[in-house]
């Protein structure tokens, strides 16, 4: 089935947190690394704070699938409170990974989501965003965390492309560009699994 051929990603956020923007930015950044991409949001009732989803597909080959993603290889959770109300790991593939913006450990999140801890990666993207951008907008740092967890994407290429995109979007607010890029780098370096923690402590 198609699942074996490509990476499929599901973003969970709340209306206004930038789940859609993150998926679009991520797609453009991945295109710059030479892969085929799709990014699409799930459009439901649109209001601030409501649970929303967006999606990405990445492949070495042209992507012709245009159906929903129900068995993601990666799930990104922008808002940890969603774990109380939305089944964020639903359909996650056997070898799938979930990346959560949280201050808790991978072990604690794994227990909460009732999945094995080797599936879980955590990063405090909200804190990173506060430190680097000055606002709690965790979508850009989560891009960095996702690039790290996927593994075979070139972070330098992603940073370069994102800088280019942000320079176009924020040409009147250049101060936010460096902060956003710093947030991606920090999340890339700080995202961790339980295994990484165990290895460090050993």
């Amino acid at each position: 089935m198609a699942n074996d051929r490509m990476i499929e990603i599901r973003w969970h956020g709340r209306g206004g947190q930038g789940a859609k923007t993150a998926a679009l930015l991520f797609a453009e950044a991945v295109l710059s690394t030479g892969k085929y991409v799709q990014a699409f949001p799930e459009y439901g009732p649109e209001r601030m704070g409501a649970p929303v989803q967006s999606f990405n597909r990445i492949s070495e080959q042209p992507i012709t699938l245009h159906c929903a993603i129900t068995e993601p290889s990666f799930v990104v959770v922008l808002d940890p409170t969603l774990m109380d109300s939305v089944p964020v790991v639903e359909g996650l593939r056997k070898d799938g990974k979930v990346i959560v913006n949280t201050q808790f450990s991978a072990k604690e999140i794994a227990a909460k989501l009732k999945v094995s801890s080797d599936k879980v990666f955590v990063v405090n993207a909200s804190k990173i965003a506060m430190d680097t951008i000055g606002l709690n907008i965790p979508n850009t740092p989560m891009l960095g965390a996702l690039v790290k967890v996927i593994g075979d994407l070139d972070i330098e290429g992603v940073l370069k492309d994102t800088r280019h995109k942000l320079e176009q979007k924020f040409r009147h607010k250049p101060q936010v560009i460096d902060g956003n890029l710093e947030s991606i780098k920090r999340a890339y370096n700080e995202v961790q699994s339980e295994q990484a923690v165990a290895a460090k402590n050993a």
Binding site: A27, V37, F40
Partner: peptide
């Protein structure tokens, strides 16, 4: 184009 499926889907 098909609404949302293509109109709002970013592709190469």
């Amino acid at each position: 184009t098909d609404g949302f499926i293509i109109s709002h889907c970013m592709e190469v």
